[in-house]
Simulated scan of single mutants.
Amino acid sequence: RWHVVLHFVPPALPAAWVGLLLLRQLEPAYLNLLLGLFLISNLPLVLRRQREIETVPQAGNIAWLPVVGTLAGFESGFTGAVGLLFNRFYHRLGLNKQEIVATRAANDVLLHLVKVVLYVSYGMLDRATLTAGVAMMVIAGNQIVTKDRIGVHYSWESSEIKMAFYWRQHRVALELEKPFEIEVRHAVKLKNGTSPNSEAVQQTSYNILHVSAFNDIYITHANSPDS
């Protein structure tokens, strides 16, 4: 919902700058106290058992959205994040769960990009902080690669170039053949089924996009059991 982003982000950016200036002026002891209070204030929202909302409410008035953006920007600039505090405001605008996730992601990405620039400008990102951030990214990246079975394969022969990307049960392969033949192959390993002789088998579904100078563009589909 880009109209929500346009009402939320512009007032949030200067408010984040004000929160960052306040952050620079506080003594570390007071900062720790305020951050602790902020985290504790989020506990009721995390622990409260909410009923599943099946229907989306009617879209509310967005006139107050710049005020919410200002508060969220200040909170984000001062504490680094706003947690779950403003999710209910998104829901009151008539957004469903998927729209809340996407709209909030757009708001947060724009806000955090500006905050990173401000942190660098005010010298608040030192070497130790950057090192810790890089280490966390590497650890998280390794865990994601292992858990989701991410991989890349590349080969180059005299008349053919192949590149494949693996993610979970998906495999996307790009093949270039001379003189001009391109294949984009998407394979998905389906859930285990049962063969006629009652042995468990796994099916792979293929969707192949062919681009050829001689045969134009066409798509083929196929299923095959894995050995």
Score class of each variant (00 low, 15 high):
29 A>N: 08
29 A>R: 13
29 A>V: 13
29 A>C: 02
29 A>I: 09
30 Y>D: 14
31 L>R: 09
31 L>C: 01
32 N>I: 07
33 L>P: 00
33 L>F: 08
33 L>E: 06
34 L>Y: 12
34 L>I: 00
34 L>H: 05
35 L>G: 05
37 L>Q: 07
37 L>Y: 04
37 L>M: 13
38 F>D: 14
39 L>S: 14
39 L>K: 05
41 S>A: 15
42 N>D: 06
44 P>Q: 08
45 L>E: 08
45 L>P: 02
46 V>D: 02
47 L>E: 06
48 R>S: 11
49 R>I: 14
51 R>E: 11
53 I>D: 11
55 T>G: 05
55 T>C: 00
55 T>E: 15
56 V>Q: 10
57 P>K: 04
61 N>D: 15
62 I>K: 04
63 A>V: 09
65 L>G: 06
66 P>D: 06
66 P>M: 07
68 V>C: 06
73 G>I: 07
73 G>K: 03
76 S>H: 12
77 G>W: 01
78 F>D: 05
79 T>D: 00
79 T>C: 11
80 G>W: 02
81 A>S: 12
81 A>M: 05
82 V>K: 07
83 G>A: 06
85 L>R: 00
85 L>I: 08
87 N>T: 13
87 N>Y: 03
89 F>D: 06
89 F>L: 04
91 H>T: 04
92 R>N: 12
93 L>K: 02
93 L>M: 10
95 L>Q: 02
98 Q>P: 00
103 T>Y: 07
104 R>T: 13
105 A>E: 07
105 A>D: 08
106 A>P: 01
108 D>V: 15
109 V>H: 01
110 L>A: 14
110 L>K: 03
112 H>C: 06
115 K>R: 14
115 K>I: 11
117 V>M: 04
118 L>E: 11
118 L>A: 14
121 S>I: 01
125 L>P: 02
125 L>G: 01
128 A>G: 09
129 T>K: 05
130 L>F: 06
131 T>G: 10
131 T>K: 10
132 A>S: 11
133 G>N: 03
134 V>N: 09
135 A>F: 08
136 M>H: 00
137 M>S: 12
139 I>V: 15
140 A>C: 11
143 Q>A: 14
144 I>N: 10
147 K>C: 05
147 K>M: 10
147 K>A: 14
